Computed example of a mutant assay.
Amino acid sequence: MSTDHRIDPPHFGGERETLRAFLDYHRATLAMKCRGLTDEQLRERSMPPSTLTLLGLVRHMAEVERAWFRRVFQDDKAPMVWSDEIDFQAAYEVGSSTRAEAFAVWEAEVENSRRVEQEAASLDLAGYQPRWGTEVSLRMVMVHVLLEYGRHNGHADFLREGVDGTVGA
């Protein structure tokens, strides 16, 4: 894997700055785990019967960003990318998907999520979570998405090791 270009989160800072930094760190970690791999390597599955792949994780995290920022704070009717229904599992079915396609969607959703957060007056901004039928705060959304990245970056560690033996960070 190439040099680590991630920016470490601050050791001290306000709540918003800390949440933002950790979320961006985990976003950069997912990208780093995929760096230098071919489309075929990104589509390599873990161990049977699992169909989990690095490319599937990128697609899934694009859907997570979309569901928790775009759908909650901008348009609760916005369609998902890889599913006509709200089916997060569909993103894992990579078929002939490519790095270019998956990363373009993921990066666009990340940028939109950053805009939502940066334009919000406070972490108490309320948005409507259509799957739950209730309002949630930006704070809750940022923590939830951060936890999603943490969990899936753990999967990415194992997947990357299986692809080419690269471990760490």
Rank of each mutant, 00 (worst) to 15 (best):
T3W: 07
T3G: 01
D4E: 05
R6L: 10
R6F: 12
I7P: 05
I7N: 13
D8I: 03
G13I: 10
G13V: 05
G13N: 08
G14D: 11
G14F: 00
G14R: 00
R16Y: 10
E17H: 12
T18K: 02
T18M: 01
A21W: 09
D24M: 01
Y25R: 09
H26D: 14
A31S: 11
K33P: 03
K33A: 04
C34F: 00
C34D: 02
R35C: 02
L37G: 07
D39T: 00
Q41W: 06
L42D: 05
E44G: 04
S46G: 15
S46I: 09
P48M: 07
S50L: 09
T53A: 07
L57A: 02
V58M: 14
H60R: 10
E63W: 09
W68N: 09
F73W: 08
F73Y: 10
D76G: 08
K77S: 14
P79W: 05
P79G: 02
V81G: 02
W82H: 03
S83H: 01
D87M: 13
A90I: 06
Y92L: 15
S97N: 01
S97E: 07
R99A: 15
A100I: 04
A100V: 11
A102K: 05
A102T: 03
V105R: 01
E109Q: 15
E109D: 13
V110T: 12
R114D: 04
R115F: 06
R115V: 09
V116C: 03
E119L: 13
A120P: 09
A120S: 14
A121Y: 05
S122D: 07
D124T: 13
L125W: 05
G127D: 03
Y128T: 05
Q129I: 00
P130H: 06
W132I: 06
L138P: 00
R139I: 04
M140D: 00
M140I: 00
V145I: 14
V145Y: 11
V145L: 12
L147A: 15
L147E: 15
E148Y: 10
E148N: 09
Y149I: 01
G150C: 12
G150P: 02
N153Y: 09
N153I: 07
G154H: 00
H155C: 08
F158A: 14
F158W: 12
R160M: 06
R160I: 03
G162M: 01
V167I: 11
V167S: 05
G168N: 02
A169H: 11
